[in-house]
Design a binder for these strands. Structure first.
Lengths: 157, 157
DNA sequence: CTCCTTAATGAAAATGATTTCCATTTCTAA
DNA sequence: TTAGAAATGGAAATCATTTTCATTAAGGAG
């Protein structure tokens, strides 16, 4: 079980090899699905999309591959608090993309928002710096999420 | 299984009765433990503290009680991404207290921070308002968490 | 104070996402 | 080609949380 830490080097092609991972058929398929899908897919969502074409790729491999991709920074692993992780293809090098979400606690719909992002990022940068110094933390990531009821769910009650 | 929504009324005593819940011995014990403990306890942590004195209170009851308390707004349910929920006694009415955290991804230590809180809260207020209007969401909660390595964990590597 | 309805309880079983095990297959570098 | 390391899939294991179900207890009515 390799535990390499190989983030922030080159990009995409050759990244696997460069980090000592093998770019297998299964991994390419999963990466392909992810790069073509919009939104946030669970491991099982991915399995469902992969299975019809490649029935010999098991759910275990999906999980393992997602773990590798996440380590490589090619995929973000997201937690919306409903007990199942979601994965999102990373369009560029880690850190370039901010993923802030608005989650409906009733239907689990997720909105990726980009509004207010600039102010947020600026505040985050400062806070991260300040907190890191004060509490001696090496901060690597953050989560900002708003929870509530979406239009449909709040009217249907 | 009652599903009452009874937040934001009176406070503490009489809250149970007022919402149609019974104030049982088990619930009082759990509430007592929570109010006296500093920090974030998991269901099992609470079970461990309760069990010596009240060995007849089962883990199931802990879970059920935490659910009720959380519904009543007397306890916050927190998710630090390690697959087990933590609970924190709510010192006052819901919304009065902001709980922002700094989490070590290695040892799971959690720092509650209050620095930068004012700027954060102000930005949150604006963002919440703006997002709620734009995406027609009734926003009720938010999560802000920073992840990284604490001093100990980043040096021991 | 006692009765009665209904909520609350505990133990054990079920759930469901994720991991681990292990025997087999596939790469890859020499 | 060939040995050694990685990757794989299926089944079994994990582990926090929930559900089931038969039993107990709370608390309002009388």
């Amino acid at each position: 079980m390799p535990k390499r830490n190989c983030q922030g080097q080159g990009w995409w092609h050759g990244k696997f090899r460069g980090c000592g991972y093998r770019l297998t058929a299964g991994r390419e398929v999963i990466l392909d699905i992810l790069s073509k899908s919009q939104g946030h897919l669970s491991a099982e969502d991915i399995y469902m999309k992969v299975h019809p074409k490649y029935p010999n790729i098991g759910l275990t491999t999906i999980y393992r591959t997602l773990d590798v991709l996440s380590n490589l920074g090619m995929v973000y692993k997201l937690d919306f608090g409903d007990g199942r992780a979601r994965y999102e293809f990373a369009e560029g090098p880690k850190g370039a993309h901010h993923h802030h979400h608005l989650v409906c606690t009733d239907c689990n719909r997720v909105v990726d928002y980009a509004d207010f992002i600039n102010e947020e990022i600026e505040l985050l940068r400062q806070t991260e710096k300040g907190l890191g110094a004060k509490y001696n933390f090496k901060i690597t990531d953050h989560v900002i999420q708003f929870y509530g009821l979406c239009g449909k769910c709040s009217t249907k009650k």
